[in-house]
Amino acid sequence: MSNMVIEITAFVVATAGWVLVSSTIPTDYWKVSSIDGTVITTATYWSNLWKTCVTDSTGVSNCKDFPSMLALDGYIQVCRGLMIAAICLGFFATACALVGMKCTKIGGSDLIKARIAFFAGFQFFISGLCSLSACSLYAHRITSEFFDPMFMAQKYELGAALFIGWGGSALCILGGLVFFLSLSEGFSKSQSNADRRRYVYSASYISSHGKSQAQLANGKRPPPDYSSPSQQFDKNAYV
């Protein structure tokens, strides 16, 4: 019962992390223009993985999508790929977790369900690492430009989407690790059950054949088996 509760908790935590990671894709504020050292702010610049925008003092925003994927900076392309991979892995991990958990009635035997759930935990863990790498790479670019004294263009600060992505990544990684820990007991129980069945089979084989082997060792032949009709009478039965 406790193992089932742990699996459900891990599933809820990992799924919540995957939802948070998925919500960072359409979020606008991946980076926001810095107002450090600025007395009068007339516009606010912000952008994400898909577009860049500017908002004036009246609250009117003007956005422009990135014109070409091949013309983008390399770090934006890498972040896009990592975030899409994280979302896809989290989707398949959620489906596998629903099949592999003990509280569900699908998936087959306990050993097969344990393997499926182990694969789901591995996918959640990799999904969290992908989103964590994407957010960290994007934040590293922002901070390196902010603290570079030779960078004279517009400087930015970390947006809200990065913190949401970091939180979701942590939940995905934590949920995947809890899946691994909860399934170690299931694998050990399955192995012990297999060993127990093997021991019972060996014991029954020894008990059934041990007596006849002992009689042969003492020079005695075991009594004939008359249970089969073909062995009750031989060719000299009527002589």
Rank of each mutant, 00 (worst) to 15 (best):
T41L: 07
T42D: 10
A43L: 03
T44L: 09
W46G: 03
N48V: 00
K51P: 02
T52E: 06
V54R: 11
D56M: 00
S57D: 04
S57K: 09
T58W: 06
V60N: 10
K64Y: 06
K64M: 03
S68T: 12
L70N: 12
G74L: 09
I76V: 13
G81H: 02
A86R: 01
C88L: 15
L89Y: 09
L89M: 14
F91Y: 07
C96P: 02
L98A: 07
G100V: 07
G100K: 06
C103A: 10
K105Y: 12
K105S: 08
G107Y: 07
G107W: 02
G108T: 04
S109R: 03
D110R: 10
A114P: 00
F118H: 05
A120I: 03
G121I: 06
G121R: 00
Q123S: 13
F124E: 03
I126E: 07
S127K: 05
S127I: 05
G128K: 05
G128T: 03
L129H: 11
L129S: 12
C130M: 11
L132D: 04
S133F: 09
A134V: 03
A134S: 07
C135P: 00
S136D: 01
Y138I: 03
A139G: 07
H140E: 05
R141E: 02
T143L: 13
M150V: 12
M150H: 13
M152P: 00
A153R: 15
Q154P: 06
Q154M: 14
L158M: 08
L158A: 15
